[in-house]
Design a protein around this nucleic acid. Structure first.
Lengths: 203, 203
DNA sequence: GTCTATAAGATGATAGAC
DNA sequence: GTCTATCATCTTATAGAC
């Protein structure tokens, strides 16, 4: 028997998830909610239903190596969410607005605590943990590419698609922070509406 | 003699600054660069050229009380920067773009470490330190009001001004994070250009 | 107001039995 | 792979001399 099932986070979608995966998921959620410095390895282990020894077995590089895996996990999750939102409408402007709406709904559902999975960790470790910063940089680049590819498929030029993806991603990131601080969907919804206008102005 | 001058941060603009003020300034800069959990009180004291005893003398409420004062200090600084940027052009669209340009220049000058003075601390303490969250909320509200008042003076309706202020502030916040992670001025500059377009579309 | 010393607890990480 | 015990260090905060 390789793993003992005792996950307590209640977020597992499959019946059976390995210890390593449970640890990564717990780390990703805690980093998203409390940041890097504010999240202890012991808490991550407890929330994952694992022991400290297991965490260091899978991540001999310690907290920094675990954080990189957690950021990459959040990268995939957020990219999937973006793709789903973008596919929810035919025209790209409405699709962007739907993304903002979906972010707002999910944010409220989490009690305003689960925003972008990399922002907090990225800002805390800037210039102090190169491997983490690299993972955060790749995540943002990935999301920008998802947006850019969608705009390109919608008929925009390569340069228009790239620039719009940059602005839309930045605006959604910032609006998510604003919504978290104000505990209100309004900043995300207003920003989503304006981003739709911006995209339409290029059609 | 009340204070012994031994500030080591080199950022004092006046010849003489009291201990309390030096501590607040050092705390504001360190919170901006490393966040709340990653910044120890001892480091703040050392950077301010003060002792731990002095810090607790001025802030008996400890780290949380000091963080509130530091956030309020950053609030004023950022608001002044916004006002300066907005006054740099006659039409509001160009003014917004100039703000983004100024943010990009300052960010590069700091080695990409000194972004928004509240974002990192706000995200780390969400729902865990109410007094800090309240200070962050007031800061964002203040900056939004600065933008909104400028748009109102430029002839926009009250509702247009409010909504544009919300989106422009969120977009600048997000673009600043993106520029920090990518270590590039491009996200701030592209976002600034698009925000100018958005403002113009309402004229 | 400033300073030093120290308490009380948490943190990242490791060792070694099972 | 899992688990417990432990180390060395760091943290916030306090006490009390000056």
């Amino acid at each position: 028997m390789q793993t003992k099932q005792q996950g307590v986070s209640g977020t597992d979608t499959e019946a059976t998830v390995g210890t390593r995966e449970r640890v990564v998921r717990a780390a990703s959620r805690l980093l998203q909610q409390q940041g890097y410095e504010g999240t202890g390895i012991k808490l991550i282990a407890r929330e994952a239903g694992a022991t400290l020894g297991s965490v260091y077995h899978f991540f001999p590089g310690g907290k920094e190596e675990l954080a990189v895996a957690a950021i990459q996990h959040g990268d995939q999750e957020f990219a999937d969410m973006l793709r789903t939102g973008l596919d929810s409408a035919d025209d790209p402007a409405t699709a962007v607005e739907n993304c903002a709406r979906h972010l707002a709904t999910a944010l409220r559902a989490s009690g305003w605590t689960e925003g972008c999975p990399v922002t907090s960790t990225a800002l805390e470790t800037l210039g102090r943990a190169p491997s983490i910063q690299e993972a955060c940089s790749q995540a943002l680049r990935n999301w920008q590419n998802v947006l850019s590819a969608h705009f390109t498929r919608s008929g925009f030029t390569s340069e228009q698609a790239h620039d719009l993806a940059c602005t839309v991603l930045s605006a959604l990131e910032g609006a998510e922070v604003t919504s978290q601080v104000f505990r209100s969907e309004q900043p995300l919804l207003t920003t989503g509406r304006h981003m739709a206008q911006l995209v339409r102005s290029y059609s």
